[in-house]
Simulated scan of single mutants.
Amino acid sequence: MMLAHGYPKFQKLISGDFEFGDPIGLGATPTLFLAIIAEFICPILIIIGFKTRWAAIPTAITMAVAAFIVHGEDPFGTKEKALLFLSMFVVIMLLGPGKFSVDKK
């Protein structure tokens, strides 16, 4: 599900459009790169089960920023999806990959 949010950002980067929000003050381009890593590359690693616990960390951090900084003033219904993703990736960090992952081989 996270790939649906990361793939448009990846396409934006490939097309050369570096305009992006800057919620934590790093600059638009570095924030876009970090968002692509957290929302596109790390979910792919989680899907195949490679370095699963490590790959869940950037995505959880990104969802925390989305929930508490980007949507901090919004009502709960707006930040609900980010909080659900955050809780899901925290669970993945704690439990690790399943028995069919690359990490288990």
Rank of each mutant, 00 (worst) to 15 (best):
G27A: 12
A55I: 13
I46T: 04
F50W: 06
I69Q: 01
T52Y: 02
A60C: 09
I48R: 06
H71I: 00
P43N: 07
L26Q: 10
I44S: 01
F20E: 01
I24E: 13
P58E: 07
I37K: 07
A67L: 12
A56W: 03
F50S: 09
A28H: 00
I61E: 05
P58F: 08
T52L: 07
F40A: 12
T31K: 06
G25E: 08
F68G: 04
G21E: 13
F50Q: 01
T59D: 02
D74K: 11
I69L: 07
I41L: 14
G27D: 08
P30G: 10
G72I: 01
D22E: 09
I57A: 14
T29I: 10
T29E: 14
I69W: 02
I57S: 07
I46S: 05
G21S: 11
D22V: 01
I41G: 07
A60W: 09
A55E: 11
P23N: 06
F68R: 01
I61K: 03
I61S: 09
F40E: 08
T52D: 09
C42Y: 06
L26A: 14
I41N: 00
D74Q: 13
F68P: 08
A38N: 11
E19N: 15
A64S: 11
L26E: 10
A56P: 06
A28E: 05
D22N: 15
F33S: 05
F40D: 03
F40H: 04
G72K: 02
D74W: 00
A56V: 12
C42V: 09
F68N: 09
T29Y: 10
I47Y: 06
M63I: 08
F20H: 15
A66S: 12
A64E: 06
H71C: 02
I61F: 13
M63Y: 05
